[in-house]
Design a protein around this nucleic acid. Structure first.
Lengths: 336, 336
DNA sequence: ATAGGTTGTCGAAGCGCTTCGACTGCGGTG
DNA sequence: CACCGCAGTCGAAGCGCTTCGACAACCTAT
């Protein structure tokens, strides 16, 4: 293993000079810089992460807390995680993956041990138990998601309330009066996961405003659960002609079941999905959808964090405006 | 930030004693141990990761290289990543996420900087350019996947060759003579990704053995790509009655299209999927499938790595035996 | 009683890096 | 022409931990 000292010797300078070449924190003459850089290359030198962290009390690592639960929307998580990792690298940061398993203890461990310089939290609940800890530490953090109380926090999220509104407006504009919402699994609501509840708020308040009837049904993914849910919906509201789906693993089952019920999409019923564009575009019917901009969220979270670490950047709530793309799954409501 | 020295002072012992309480590398009297542990708790002490890494030249971090590409099977990746992270924690390791972006440089960086003690590589190609580096370092590593040449490497993977065999045997046993394979995206084969090629080997050799006709068609996921692929298959081999699918995003489109073609599953055609059990069970038809044991693979990879890090454990190739679960998507071939 | 082994604890020497203060020349200024 | 300031470099002091050798206290076997 090559050390700073070896590079220094090879280049005929002192260790501190090499360090300053690397960090750029003091000016170095062009000649010396080149000599040092050449030695670094020739020896294949990589600074030792531990030593660097110890001396500078900066680990150059960002912690990413992903939910452990698998009742959640996995592809979105993965996309965010990858976006976080790829955005962090060019800024000089690596990413450690913490699963939700440890809960608040993970936050304590990270801040206490200096394992990471900053944290990104996903799967935020409205009253998340990790938040008080976050507020009482000087480690920068960004939430992907929106809790009930955001003072002193930085959050990045899709504006799910507006998303709900947008879905209802679109269906209302097409003349649908009876709308069913296929939601996430019940457990997601029981935990008071921010995005699920806020979507619902948006859906409900807009439906009320526009005088539509709205039926919300949480749904575990999968064909059987969806079959049961759908038959109950048609039992209760046979006239339902608009659907909003916010559970990826319910989408294809829903489409299959609607066919089975003899309801053509979009002639008889319209379906709006809340999911990544790729999923919407690849479904067996091209779905009108509001996109979940996973990459964008991951990227933004990192950029805010880096800004904070550099001393720029303040606490802020960034809500990305939802965009509804009309595809082939929505159309005018059938005449009553 | 609480330090070892502060804990030592609080407990009235020397720093080294506290260190030995933490590591258990020397015997400590019960009384002293308790006093120290109490101080640790009261002060909320967490050892500083950087200092520990520097002094011990052990970072207690495992690097996980995930593929950047999104043409791959994302849920499986995520499941593996989560399994890796949750298995690593109880062994005292954290996980850093490296995206494939950096390629072989990431390996150099990790080994050179002591960022991690060991690596897990995913998305292994048959002639992966990272392998030579891995062989020339003393850092333990485990591949999730199987390259062409495995000497000096430890690999964990599903036995995809046997998986292919199993799929064909199952269909052959039901009397199917004409089989179509819906494969991964063409890019996956162009990269010579291990699992894809080995599955194909298993499928082909078994088909030859049993005298079946086999048509392999790579397929980008999604409805349109699948539609095109399927119509070509029926053009070329109208009598095709057995399908093997190894591309999650082609599954639902395939099922939808088969309905559209008027081919009932499983009465007219049988479909075997290679995918996680959860996906197979939740599809619009309960799919007969060979499971991809993502969690198991992640867990095993970590356990091998930890064994190596503890000085136990040798290079070894672990191939998990495939298991085919019969569900509702396969049945006897229709009379010709 | 004495040599020899255990057990429990301490002090000190690093691990490889960053960073601060100090020093040396230099060119520009009054 | 003496002086100041600055660019460029160096030496040394840590950062917080692990680990080695030393040592005191005790126990056992002779």
């Amino acid at each position: 293993m090559v050390t700073l000292a070896e590079v220094a010797q090879h280049a005929g300078v002192s260790a501190s000079t090499v360090s300053y070449v690397l960090s750029g924190k003091r000016s170095i003459s062009a000649g010396t810089r080149q000599r040092v850089e050449r030695s670094i290359r020739e020896l294949g030198y990589h600074p030792n992460a531990g030593a660097r962290a110890l001396a500078s009390s900066r680990s150059n690592i960002i912690a990413l807390m992903v939910p452990l639960r698998t009742d959640m929307y996995v592809p979105v998580m993965m996309e965010i995680a990858i976006a976080v990792a790829t955005t962090a690298r060019p800024h000089g940061y690596d990413v450690v993956l913490l699963t939700g398993e440890e809960g608040p203890d993970a936050v304590r461990r990270v801040t206490g041990s200096g394992l990471a310089d900053a944290m990104i939290l996903m799967d935020v609940e409205l009253e998340d138990e990790r938040l008080p800890l976050l507020r009482h530490t000087d480690q920068p953090s960004v939430l992907i998601g929106l809790p009930a109380e955001t003072t002193g926090l930085t959050c990045v999220d899709l504006d799910f309330t507006a998303t709900g509104t947008l879905c209802v407006q679109h269906l209302a504009g097409l003349g649908h009066r009876d709308i069913a919402v296929i939601g996430e699994a019940p457990a997601v609501y029981e935990r008071h996961t921010g995005f699920a509840e806020r979507t619902l708020d948006g859906l409900r308040s807009t439906a009320r405003e526009l005088g539509l009837r709205l039926l919300h049904r949480p749904c575990e993914g999968g064909y059987d659960a969806m079959a049961l849910t759908l038959s109950r919906i048609f039992d209760e509201r046979p006239g339902t002609s608009g659907f909003v789906v916010q559970n990826e693993s319910a989408i294809e089952p829903l489409l299959a079941l609607l066919r089975q019920w003899g309801r053509a999409v979009p002639e008889d019923v319209s379906v709006v999905a809340i999911c990544p564009d790729q999923v919407a575009a690849q479904a067996s019917v091209r779905l009108t959808s509001v996109a979940i901009p996973a990459q964008e969220m991951g990227r933004r979270a990192v950029e805010h964090l880096v800004a904070k670490l550099d001393g720029r950047g303040k606490d802020e709530v960034v809500l990305l405006g939802p965009e509804l793309t009309v595809r082939a799954s929505t159309g005018p409501a059938p005449a009553a």
